[in-house]
Computed example of a mutant assay.
Amino acid sequence: MKINWGTGIVIAFALFMSFILYFVFEVQSNSKYDNDLVVEEYYKHDSHFQEEMARIQNAHDLQQRPSITYTDNQGVKIVFPAGFESDKVKGNILLYRPSNKKFDFNTAIALTNSSLVIPENKLVKGRWDVNMEWQYNGKKYLTKEVIYVN
């Protein structure tokens, strides 16, 4: 049987469509390809955006800001300026892993000598987004940093 060029184009098109559909179904059904949202309640989170921007601006307006750094032998070290009274700082720290939400965790701020250390054994290698929501003297602040764990 001889196939003309029109039939060949139709067969090639059908094979290409089958190929694409196979991969779409494979990605949707296989748990290895996790395609969750970044935030569970996206619209609820987005409605508080202006408040978040005000807290970020409050933190930016400080003359002395807390520093968030990663050191190989300790982990993530958060140091507040000496002018802050440690017992008046309240809040929590969210360590967010963009590649896998299973590693995300929260830590309450409990300062020792105006600093806080998150041990290295709690952290997996790679990128971490650190969101520190804190309050000092009744004013709310939000500090966001990106760190890389080696």
Rank of each mutant, 00 (worst) to 15 (best):
Y141P: 01
E85Y: 03
N131H: 09
I93R: 03
L142T: 05
A110C: 04
F80R: 01
T143N: 05
D36H: 10
Y148M: 13
F103S: 04
F103N: 05
V146P: 10
K125D: 00
D72T: 07
S115T: 08
M1W: 14
Y33C: 03
Y141G: 05
F103P: 00
K102T: 14
A59Q: 06
K90T: 14
L21D: 09
Y22Q: 09
V117I: 02
L94Q: 09
L142N: 04
T112D: 08
N113A: 11
V124T: 06
G75W: 00
F84K: 10
T69Q: 06
A12P: 04
Q57C: 07
Q50E: 15
W134S: 01
N100E: 15
F16W: 09
A110V: 12
L123P: 00
D61A: 15
I3D: 01
E120D: 04
A12M: 13
Y22H: 12
F49I: 13
V130E: 01
G6T: 15
S114R: 10
N100R: 14
Q63T: 13
D87T: 15
Y42R: 12
H45M: 11
M53I: 12
I9V: 05
T112L: 10
D129R: 02
V130L: 01
E41P: 00
K102L: 06
G75L: 00
S18R: 08
S31H: 06
E52P: 05
D46C: 13
S29N: 13
L95I: 11
E51I: 10
N73V: 04
I147G: 04
T7V: 15
P119K: 04
